[in-house]
């Protein structure tokens, strides 16, 4: 791997995660995309879904966000999301809440793109729930 960049996940209440990362997969508004070090500067909105971050310590973290936006620079990635939680640390209540919200959004979704994405996010959440329950 060529190197690492700074990955930050910021919610209005606090900084949830700030660490060196090698790779981040983000649910962008125009399709999922992967960021490696040296990525061209991009500002993009994010759809509800799971962000996968490969940290420099070689561990992978999944983070669920219900929408937000990201600022990508060659040396840093900053995700701003109102509601976010780290998948491994989430409890049933958080999952339940996020699922409820995603389903309401699904009911209000206007175009196919959003519909597809929300369905995907809901599937991911349900999968997580099953995994937690097991």
């Amino acid at each position: 791997m060529a190197g690492t960049f700074k990955f930050e996940l910021v919610s209005p209440e606090r900084i949830l995660l700030s660490d060196e990362a090698e790779e981040a997969i983000l649910p962008g508004a125009e399709g999922q995309f992967t960021v490696l070090v040296g990525h061209a500067p991009v500002v993009s909105t994010l759809l509800p879904g799971v962000i996968h971050v490969k940290l420099a310590t070689a561990s992978t973290k999944g983070i669920y966000i219900d929408g937000g936006f990201v600022e990508v620079n060659p040396q840093s990635v900053t995700v701003l999301a109102e509601h976010a939680f780290i998948v491994d640390e989430a409890d049933q209540r958080q999952l339940e809440e996020a699922l409820g919200k995603a389903e309401t959004a699904l009911g209000e979704a206007k175009d196919d793109e959003a519909l597809r994405h929300l369905t995907c996010a809901i599937d991911q959440l349900k999968g997580l729930q099953r995994k937690k329950a097991a």
């Binding site: 209005p12 962008g28 508004a29 125009e30 061209a40 500067p41 500002v43 993009s44 909105t45 936006f69």
Partner: peptide, 28 residues
């Protein structure tokens, strides 16, 4: 900085969404 940023979707759409979020942020 801003000269080199790429915007996805375009600036107008992002700005619209951000402004909405910004209301909540300001109130918070």
């Amino acid at each position: 900085n801003s000269a080199v940023y790429e915007y996805e979707p375009d600036e107008q759409v992002i700005l619209g969404q951000l402004l909405k979020r910004n209301i909540a942020t300001q109130i918070f």
